[in-house]
């Protein structure tokens, strides 16, 4: 019993230590974003765009294909389940499924698997290769130089990925709806437009910001946690993926509760 309590205490302490360090990192990131003292903005922008290109642009074909398939399959399921229901629901269904729920989540899961893992590995390799130590010797703040551009790049990539998924998902769903329900495409487009609320754009921006920075922060944090050996890298990547998934789903649940219950 005492041993179990001790183990529980150790786990709680470790968890609180992570929370404390991550909170300090968040504060430091916010400070560097607001006051980029002595930092070459052009250099930061260059790394940010490289990160956004890798995370967003290079993942675009896969994300677009997923969007079309999930949009199409989702609407196919609903159309068969809700046979006989009013056609005007299809616009609302498309917006609710694709834009409000699936788009941000699928894009986040894809970016965790593709870019979060790469980021954690890169940071772990930088730590093992002495790159972070060298930065430290030259008084180059890793938060400003390494973390900030990656977080900004990931947020940009997340926003672009969500929008791409939404567009392709709506397209895939619409094609199925037009074929199966025999609705004209202009009519369906009107119904989708009517179902879209101004808050949907705000929510997309908010989710891109929250999900993107959660993924980048956890990936960098656990990657930088590698200390001595390359064998720590897979463990760091696993931790980064699990923490990013948990963070994204918790943030999504909190936002959904705020959106639908408020």
């Amino acid at each position: 019993m005492r041993g179990q309590l001790r183990r529980l205490g150790r786990s709680v302490r470790a968890f609180l230590r992570h929370v404390g360090t991550l909170s300090r990192l968040e504060l430091s990131l916010a400070r560097h974003l607001l006051v980029p003292v002595g930092y070459n903005v052009r250099l930061c922008a260059k790394i940010t765009l490289t990160q956004a290109r890798f995370s967003g642009l290079q993942a675009a074909p896969l994300l677009a294909a997923l969007g079309v398939m999930i949009g199409a399959v989702g609407i196919l399921q609903f159309v068969s389940l809700l046979a006989g229901l009013a056609d005007d629901l299809i616009g609302k269904l498309l917006v609710t499924i694709i834009v409000r729920e699936m788009g941000p989540l699928i894009a986040a899961v894809l970016l965790i698997g593709r870019s979060g893992t790469a980021m954690a590995t890169e940071l772990g390799t930088m730590r093992l290769g002495g790159e972070l130590e060298a930065l430290s010797a030259y008084r180059i703040d890793p938060v400003a130089f390494v973390l900030l551009p990656r977080v900004l790049g990931m947020v940009l990539a997340m926003f672009a990925s969500i929008v791409l998924f939404d567009v392709t998902g709506l397209l895939g769903g619409s094609v199925i709806a037009v074929i199966v329900k025999d609705i004209s495409f202009p009519l369906l487009r009107g119904r989708v437009a009517a179902a879209l609320m101004p808050g949907d754009f705000g929510m997309t921006v908010l989710k891109a910001f929250l999900f993107g920075q959660t993924i980048a922060l956890f990936s960098c944090y656990f990657g930088m946690g590698v200390k001595r050996s390359p064998t720590e890298l897979p463990q760091a990547v696993t931790r980064a993926v699990v923490a990013s998934l948990a963070g994204v789903f918790v943030a999504d649940a909190a936002l959904a509760a705020a959106y639908y219950l408020a």
Partner: peptide, 11 residues
């Protein structure tokens, strides 16, 4: 100015 034996250059 820090000169490292191995590593230390951004890859």
């Amino acid at each position: 100015g820090y000169v490292m034996e191995e590593g230390g250059l951004l890859s």
